[in-house]
Design a protein around this nucleic acid. Sequence first.
RNA 1: GGGCGUUUAGCUCAGCGGGAGAGCGUCCGCCUUACACGCGGAGGGUCGCAGGUUCAAAUCCUGCAACGCCCACCA
Length: 935
Amino acid sequence: MTMTELAKAYDPKDVEQKWYAFWEKGEYFHAPDDPKNETYCIVIPPPNVTGALHMGHALNNTLQDICTRFKRMQGLATLWQPGTDHAGIATQNVVERELMKTEGKRRQEIGREALIERIWTWREAYGDRILKQLKAIGSSCDWERTRFTLDEGLSQAVRESFVRLYDEGLIYRGKYIVNWCPRCHTALADDEVDHADENGHLWHIRYPFSSKSETQNPKSKTKPDGVVVATTRPETMLGDTAVAVNPKDERYSNLIGKMLTLPETGRQIPIVADDFVDAAFGTGAVKVTPAHDPNDFQIGERHNLPRINVMNEDATMSAEAGETYAGMTRDECRKKIVEALEKQGLLEKIDEHAHAVGHCYRCHTTIEPWLSDQWFVKMRPLAEKAIRATEESKVQFHPERWTQFYLQWLENARDWCISRQIWWGHRIPVWYCKTRDPEPGTRNPGSEQDLSESRIPNSESRALCPPIVSRETPTTCPHCGSTELTQDEDVLDTWFSSALWPFSTLGWPDKTPLLERYYPTSTLITDRGIIYFWVARMVMMGLKMMEEVPFKDVYIHGTILDEQGRKMSKSLGNGIDPLEMIDRYGADAMRFSLVVLSTEGQDLKLSESKFEMGRNFCNKLWNASRFAMMNLEDFDGTAPDEKDLTLADRWIMNRLQTTTNDVIDALDGFRFSVAAQALYQFIWNDFCDWYLEAAKLHLSPKDEEQGAKGATAQRHATQHTLTETLGTVLKLAHPFLPFITEEIWNHLEPEASPLIVDTYPTSSAVPFEDEANLFIITKKEPVEAIRNIRGESNVDPAKRIPKAFSGFSTQALVDYAEASPRYVEHLARVEEHRAFLVGQEPEETTKAAAGVTENQTIYIPLAGLIDVAAETARLEKEIARTEKEIASVEGKLKNAGFIERAPAEIVQRERDRAQQAKTKLTTLAEAMEKVKQMA
RNA sequence: GGGCGUUUAGCUCAGCGGGAGAGCGUCCGCCUUACACGCGGAGGGUCGCAGGUUCAAAUCCUGCAACGCCCACCA
């Protein structure tokens, strides 16, 4: 067997590049179109084309890669479907900003076609940046299948689903109050609005009665000549068309139906009664502005109130606001209105008032509730199916608590506004016939306009040609034959296409083999932040279009926070760049650290120092491998007789299988951190600290204990176990540490197929339980006890202890300790370690330091090498600890309730403990006596 | 205003009904022939507070507090 020598310290840089290129070239990431075996599929949460890799991506994709590599090695046909999202508003904003910066132009100046062209150019140049960055962390995506939400195929999927939903009455157009971003000039979905508490004011404004003859309610607190309303937004009063009070509010009961004069406009508006009004808030009277407030819109519908739109698209005041205010910004207008009211004595008072204000999630501009024509998806029928599927456990969340979170949203989901007044995205597949809609796309509908667009599709009430909703671009109007068709100006919400991602990427609406074999996908791994935006909508659309849930398991991982527990963000500048960390510590180190820290979906506080753990671990594995290979040069690869396996061999094989079972079990249950920690613990504490150290005894040519023949056989057995164990460890660890494991594997087994497609170890019964136990009792325990005495009693580390004794309670243990290899001597630096049966203490144990473990008593004759004062201190400490334990256990045993009610085995265990502790105390006390005599 | 999460060693976090754990940091000692990104040893915790259930509670229940996240139309 030939092996290339390994470098002294692991250097990730070259290794990572080399193997990633190797995997790509070998097409190991490629999933077959029509595999015969079982499939496993993950669709990537498509990053925005404008995105740059951040730690959240690093964690998210590491977990996906672990799952993908794990399943691939388990022999499944595995597809990790990659791609990017066009991210409508975000991307358009980036390019618009660039346009302004480089040419000083607004998008309107260059026009729709030119802007879209620029965005495509931008995408060609930068759009794949994040995908390249994903490669740096080792992501084993099937890159040949990379998709983009604006690809031809995916656009077809969008049209197909739009038309289907429309035909079924699940998509409608309506004039509604929407969340309008005056900066982006577009509507936003409810969940695209971020609410933040702001300190505002509550202005109390008196609206006078229209006629002096109005009677005064004796219970009313209002002044004789009007009704006082409270508002946080005085500027919207220009669009008021009523004042509402609660019908049960006695203060106002006799005023219902009376008219008020709206200040500044002179408009006559009625007082209406509506249950929505909370009599306890403010004055109990609410100004009603149906065109500028969602609640007022509802009230307006119930009472047939006109809607007066007093604002333009950019949130300046419109002509409807009246000559004085038209053209002002909303803030200026507010100031002027308040001044004017004050002058007229109509401003009763101003209270401080904190309230939630909506902001655009993209640009943070204050949202304006604004009346406009929009397209909506009717949610209830879709949500109900999703709820049912989830209740039937067809979709399972991990951790489980997110199920409730997600269901709650589905149960309350309001209709989804899917039209956006931007240019970058999927254009709505609806065309209007000239004869019907003379000015398609006209915004800013005024109050005089009605709700002619029925919210019920295919309404019979239309006089003219209905809109044409079509998969293909139509050339003539099917109703009147006109060729003058205009497409709807709007594009769809980005999440509309994202909702189709699990099947649109696999070829839908075509019935491709890929779709057939890989849908429904297996696991979705994402952040809790997009459970509503994305996960819920994928489930709804999957059920609607495919009649099957899009994935079976949803794993929600935690959010990455900085050291102080804040979210990492560009504006705070507290982000840690994954690429920098990869550069400094290596991709495997970063992956491993992230996974260990990512426990059960908890948020993880991150600092750069956390990556040292991963780096040190990689280096440990590297050096253990170096050591192994230095000792394998003359190994012929053949299996040894089982009888030649050493005790250490049997123990490590026992531990290895336990670890294998644990890792598989943890991965199957999405407990990534548990799996990673099991590996860490095995490699570092079992394999390196104990097995390799013990193995040195057998590998060393000068093993004088066994005859030359025995030594050779054991050396061979050890070499075999070393190879097998290391090989298995590399396989187990490969999903977590793909680069370093592949590199070591290549040195260890140069002829074998690459690890990425090797077979993952399997769960099975744990072998050598008895021998493993014997190794622990007769070897590990004494070594630990002797090391403890050495350390605490100031024994010179360079000095070899001449003799040490272990007293066991059975002859079998004595025989075993005496007969098997001299691990204790080797590992505890003792010349001779002997065993005896309790009661047959050799003479040398009378003046000795003593240690008591679970299964034995250890004696080290003092003989001038142990510091008596230190040994006394050590014993005192040990005695105190033991006394405390006895007190605790005896306390339990004295409790009659415990004896009666606790399970017999528990009671017995406590009795054993008490007995053991008492024996220990006696032994320690005796040792103490002897040490004192020596002083 | 609701909902969820967190509160365990100096720090970051496991454990979630029967003997308080890990990593980092700290202290002591080591260049022991793979690794100082290392080796050996040690110290350190009334498990947020208050009740309750139980023979037994860090672990289950109730209440409270602090911190964090999400949802919400009180003008």
